[in-house]
Design a protein around this nucleic acid. Structure first.
Lengths: 268, 268
DNA sequence: CAGTGGTCTAGACCACCGG
DNA sequence: CGGTGGTCTAGACCACTGG
């Protein structure tokens, strides 16, 4: 039962206390030494716990002063960020998923690079519409490498959560990289998202890998504006956020929806 | 001279080795024990170094196996993300800044909340146009609390980097929270960014705090599309990325540029 | 100045992965 | 099974903050 490491459980207790405003905001946490005594663990363990809160932007840390509680950050866990369905449920919406088209194709250059596969490899391309309580919210073009595709392919087309299915099969996501920018809807986007061609959409391109570093999927998701925002926290301690320059004309493809990446099924 | 802690210097050496493809990608790092010997430090110090690379998404880590090198991540340091000018230089562009309007105003509700100040506090609102090598790239509406505003106010209107100026004054940013979504240009946006009213823009709302947790600025930046993307890395180890739901009608303000937040100078 | 967090050590035990 | 990383301990010294 008690398989969660000590420092994680301590971090959870502290997080809860903070969210319930036991200290702040602006309040000071007990010192590491005091906490170590209270929890009857060594200072190192306490530091590990506090590190978690630090990375989530819940507390500061400076030599010389006690840690200060920051405002509540909109903290989600990794699992929730990784799965559209889980996220939807957490905000009280009913997630819907529907596969519009899927099939095996030879990997194009972008897929070969992103999924780290050879130029003779096949990928499963899936075009999927995501709904929030019935309303179209996002159109997802995903490419899976052979091994993962074989698991995903036989799924019912209305499977709500692919991520959760993969987890039951022992496939876990450990890392993800997201690129967020703006594109305009192509004909396919407009049809399924029920908007006009050339309407602006929020685009998230995503590459996920398993704990061994093996790429699991490469996806381009296009969100209708007004329903979603991305929130990022960064700090001196850890900075996963980056601006990226785009060569004029490249990157932000207007119109040609299948673009360079995982266009899904426009072929045939 | 040797003031950088040991583990950071080790991390830098390893990062360099990785970027120069001394191991991978896909290659395996030496074990922690081996590295500890090589650098003549304890295993704990090596683990601290590796933790940095882990959070940057450069290597994996799993019990039982050696760490695996992932693809090169687009790693920037915090300072670069924090400063438009520094970022611009790093991609070989010439940053430009021009204050269009600034002035002191009573803090509105949003500013009071974001900057954690009372309802009788004043803020300095600055409307600033940012250029990349001459071309308009971003329009920035920033609100500073009294203390910071007093430092920023006397600056020349063409000051390229406010961040760098503040650092010279001993003001350092330690934490930031970013919310990214899509809006349409209002009249003010269109005028200065040289686009049409209602053109889509990428919006980044940002709140930064100093090492003690005191809010330093609250800003709403609007980028012309096609010139920038945001890249986020997240992992089981640390997940600062979040989707956020928006109430229909709220959040994504169309038109009223000064929105709920730090509208700058539309008043008068 | 006393108290705090940042760094570092040297050791221990365990869970897990691969051969 | 041996080797690996994950967890945890008990101590030490230092840099910095604040009164």
């Amino acid at each position: 039962m008690t398989q969660e490491p000590r420092y994680r459980r301590i971090a959870e207790e502290l997080r809860k206390a903070i969210i319930e405003h036991a200290y702040g905001p602006g309040g000071r946490l007990p010192s590491e030494g005091t906490l170590a005594e209270q929890y009857a663990v060594s200072r190192g363990t306490i530091r590990q716990a506090l590190m978690l809160l630090r990375h989530d932007g819940l507390v500061t840390s400076r030599r010389g002063t006690r840690r200060v509680v920051l405002d509540d950050a909109p903290v989600q866990d990794f699992a929730q960020m990784q799965s559209f369905a889980r996220w939807a449920r957490s905000i009280g919406e009913v997630p819907g998923g529907l596969v519009i088209r899927q099939g095996w194709y030879p990997a194009d250059a972008e897929e070969q690079r992103s999924l780290r596969i050879g130029d003779d490899a096949r990928v499963l391309r899936v075009l999927r519409l995501r709904r929030l309580s019935g309303r179209p919210a996002m159109l997802e073009r995903t490419s899976y490498p052979e091994a993962v595709g074989a698991i995903v392919e036989p799924l019912r087309t209305d499977t709500v959560s692919v991520t959760e299915f993969l987890e039951r099969g022992g496939v876990y996501v450990a890392d993800a990289e997201h690129t967020i920018d703006l594109v305009r809807a192509d004909a396919e986007d407009a049809e399924h998202l029920e908007c006009e061609v050339a309407d602006p959409l929020l685009r998230e391109r995503r590459r996920t890998t398993d704990p061994a570093g093996v790429p699991l999927e490469w996806s381009e998701d296009r969100y209708l504006p007004g329903s979603i925002a991305f929130v990022v926290h960064n700090s001196l301690a850890s900075t996963p956020l980056t601006r990226q320059h785009m060569m004029p004309g490249a990157g932000s493809d207007f119109g040609s929806g299948s673009g360079s990446g995982s266009g899904s099924g426009s072929e045939s």
